[in-house]
């Protein structure tokens, strides 16, 4: 048991190191200085209070989108639709933020709740289709992403506004932004959403590990037939997993809508928050704590990487390659696990 656990912790760490290492090799091959590159990455993410604030700001939606993917995966479902659920959550939160005039104590929770509900609904559709008709959730969720993208563009353009490219800014009573946090970090866009995200990680851990319902969800993830035989309703658990996963994703959208931007604009493509969430969940081994740590890593990479072209002269494209390499090594963790186990056997 102990050795198994060590392996689980070692795999993501080795993946990241291998990724950084091959990134360094590639930078070297193309004639850039990897030490300087990574130093730029580091200062770009933690160099001073502003960048620290921006990194934490980027981490916030990653935690939630990572939780969304991880939660569904624990029940054996691959929710590729987190991206779309982020979109509907974003639109819903901004809509509530713009449309109502309420005291903060009602307005803010209402906007956050609207986002969670919208995301949950967007997760419910593939969930019910999978549970009742056996339609594969991957296909439905991918398609739902496009529906969400174009639907939210339409809503921004013609429902919330009158043919404009972006909505008005949300009322201050619905905003997660904090002057105190911004002032402390030289006007970074760090907002209170980080607390919500961390709290949700706690919720996921508690739900999965400390409740009967969580046991059922995990059980369905391990073996549907056995769970069925044990008297659990597989279809109910599938729908529930997708709904909760969607709610997490919707909250990630609220972080962008109520925290970072304070508005929604017409998007020409995906934000990648949801897609990056898949990598975050994989790297975090689908556990709450792992997801939080992985989200920190990804947030750091994303924000720090912006600094590499200007300070170290490493082109943006190479930075993208380095990030992609880390993801590849994370995704191929099976290979690393196999190698480690091989080593272990020989050692015996």
């Amino acid at each position: 048991m102990f050795a198994n656990r060590t392996v689980n912790i070692l795999i993501p760490i080795i993946s990241v190191l291998l990724g950084l290492l091959s990134g360094a090799v590639i930078m070297l091959v193309f004639g850039y200085n990897p030490l300087k590159g990574y130093a730029a990455l580091w200062t770009g993410a933690f160099g001073d209070a502003y960048f620290l604030g921006e990194t934490l700001r980027q981490v916030t939606p990653y935690i939630l989108s990572g939780l969304a993917v991880a939660f569904a995966l624990r029940t054996g479902l691959l929710n590729i639709g987190v991206e779309g659920q982020v979109f509907v959550g974003w639109v819903a939160s901004v809509w509530v933020g713009v449309a109502f005039e309420l005291p903060m104590i009602i307005h803010l929770p209402l906007a956050v709740l609207a986002a969670a509900l919208a995301g949950a609904f967007w997760g419910f559709i593939p969930g019910i289709l999978k549970a009742k008709l056996g339609v594969h959730e991957v296909i439905v969720t991918i398609m739902m992403n496009y529906i969400a993208l174009y639907l939210s563009n339409e809503i921004v353009r013609n429902v919330i506004t009158d043919g404009k490219d972006r909505t008005d800014s949300i009322a201050p009573t619905a905003s997660l932004a904090s002057e105190w946090l911004a002032g402390m970090t030289y006007f970074s866009r760090l907002h209170w959403g980080l607390l919500i995200a961390l709290f949700m990680a706690l919720v996921m851990w508690f739900l999965l590990n400390k409740t009967t319902q969580g046991f059922e969800l995990r059980s369905v993830g391990f073996n549907q037939h056995a769970s069925n035989y044990a008297g659990m309703s597989v279809s109910k658990n599938i729908v529930l997993a997708m709904v909760i996963s969607g709610a997490f994703a919707g909250l990630a959208g609220a972080m962008e809508g109520l925290g970072t931007f304070g508005y929604m604009s017409v998007k020409s493509g995906f934000t990648n928050i949801g897609f990056d969430g898949i990598a975050v969940a994989l790297l975090g081994a689908n556990t709450a704590l792992g997801v939080v740590l992985a989200a920190f890593l990804f947030g750091t990479l994303k924000i720090g990487a912006l600094n590499m072209p200007t300070v170290a002269g490493v082109p943006t494209e190479l930075v993208e390659i380095v990030i992609a390499l880390i993801i590849i090594f994370v995704a191929s963790s099976y290979m690393i696990r196999w190698i480690i186990l091989r080593f272990k056997k020989e050692g015996k």
């Binding site: 070692l10 190191l17 360094a24 070297l28 004639g31 300087k36 080593f343």
Partner: peptide
């Protein structure tokens, strides 16, 4: 049991350091 892992781990770190050193000298030329 963990000795193997530690070995792999430290190997990786060493490679990282060596590569880093190469990078530094490259910088001088640059």
């Amino acid at each position: 049991k963990n000795r193997r892992f530690l070995l792999v781990f430290s190997l990786l770190l060493v490679i990282g350091l060596v590569l880093g050193a190469c990078g530094a000298s490259d910088d001088g030329g640059d």
